[in-house]
Design a binder for these strands. Structure first.
Lengths: 107, 107
DNA sequence: TCGTGATATTGCAATATTACGATGATAAAT
DNA sequence: ATTTATCATCGTAATATTGCAATATCACGA
């Protein structure tokens, strides 16, 4: 026991849960917000800005990145992040359609 | 270490994360979906329907309920659940405005 | 009252997540 | 060449979440 039994749910349910999981930690919400507010490139100002260690920020960034929400490229030794808007909108639409459908069917 | 440092984030960021957390487990997504599809009252068909133990379903229901998303009342010994649409819409709006704001500010 | 069915709670084991220091890799600057 | 800055990864400790069996509670019917 202890592990989520993903296999008992259908794909669309797991999809909603996986999307939500990205936003289910305040550090990741803060990171996305901060990146979205910057002009062009940002590097690890995030560490100062948010107040977690560099390793921890990097970990959260990779969770967000694994979900496909980031475009990152190196400029010299600095990494520049940008939100992958197409994917981000996909997330928005998927979540929102879950909300709409649930609301519509409801008693 | 190991615990989320909620206190370093502002209220609106924690709010988004807390909302997302409710939907961040497929069982809870499945429960909400199922409840929304039923006419009027449901009882623990959820156990058969989803395939987790009664204890586990009950736990997930209380997570959803603590977030204010359920209206539940007993009819005899059976509990009837209904989604609290007002709260549910609040969630939808809060999440969606995070998406919109992030998208708008983005590079 | 007793038994039964429905739900909630408790206690615990398994697993996942969060956080950080240390280390490694790479690129610029000295 | 050496140092410095930036970022990723590894190892590990602390904490949280998930899931279930066992138990408790409560409502109903016999």
């Amino acid at each position: 026991m202890g592990a989520t039994k993903r296999f008992i749910y259908n794909q669309s349910i797991n999809e909603v849960a996986n999307i939500a999981k990205v936003f289910a930690h305040p550090a990741r919400v803060a990171i996305l917000k901060y990146i979205s507010e910057q002009e062009g490139c940002i590097n690890n100002d995030l560490v100062d800005e948010i107040g977690l260690s560099q390793a921890t920020i990097s970990q959260h960034l990779s969770v967000i990145g694994d979900a496909g929400l980031l475009k990152g490229r190196f400029e010299g030794n600095k990494k520049c992040y940008c939100i992958n808007i197409e994917r981000f909108e996909e997330f928005q639409i998927l979540l929102n359609s879950f909300f709409i459908k649930t609301k519509t069917n409801c008693c």
